[in-house]
């Protein structure tokens, strides 16, 4: 082999980069970590099926926002024909009362930032103040 002194370190750097996730997660002690958001105890169902909400809650809230504020339509008919008020504070947060335990876990996990909490507040947050 020629120029091993340069090529071997180069390859080691490559291997280090490729396997970086192992080291990163190992050091932070979160190998295989999956967040377990705290679900409301007393209520069993959300406005839509869980799978749908998990994927589309952002779109749903966006639709609610424009529908309620801009069109003045505030009743949401779910796919199972139940009726809900379109409101983050008066519908969603009635069950999901804790932001850190529910929202933030997954948002942090997926590296997603949202600006809802600049204005809307959780009941738990107020008690702390």
């Amino acid at each position: 082999m020629y120029d091993g002194k340069k090529i071997i370190p180069g390859l080691l750097i490559f291997l280090g980069l490729v396997t970086y996730p192992f080291w990163h997660n190992g050091v932070s002690g979160k190998t295989g970590y999956v967040p377990k958001p705290k679900l409301p105890v007393d209520k069993k169902e959300c406005v839509e099926p869980k799978d749908y909400i998990r994927v589309n809650h952002k779109d749903l809230l966006d639709d609610w926002k424009s529908s309620a504020i801009r069109k003045g339509r505030r009743t949401y008919v779910a796919s199972n024909q139940k009726r809900y008020t379109m409101s983050l504070t008066r519908t969603c947060m009635q069950c999901h009362t804790d932001r850190a335990e529910f929202c933030d876990q997954c948002h942090k996990y997926a590296g997603v930032e949202n600006k809802c909490w600049d204005c809307h507040m959780f009941p738990k947050e107020i008690k702390k103040e």
């Binding site: 997660n25 979160k30 999956v34 799978d51 998990r54 994927v55 779109d59 996990y109």
Partner: peptide, 24 residues
């Protein structure tokens, strides 16, 4: 839209060599 939570959980499980399936 894709359920990113499942995707990341799957990646993490693959990385920890206890693979799960992102079925849904």
């Amino acid at each position: 839209r894709v359920d990113l939570m499942q995707v990341k959980a799957w990646v993490m499980s693959m990385l920890s060599f206890h693979p799960t399936l992102p079925k849904g």
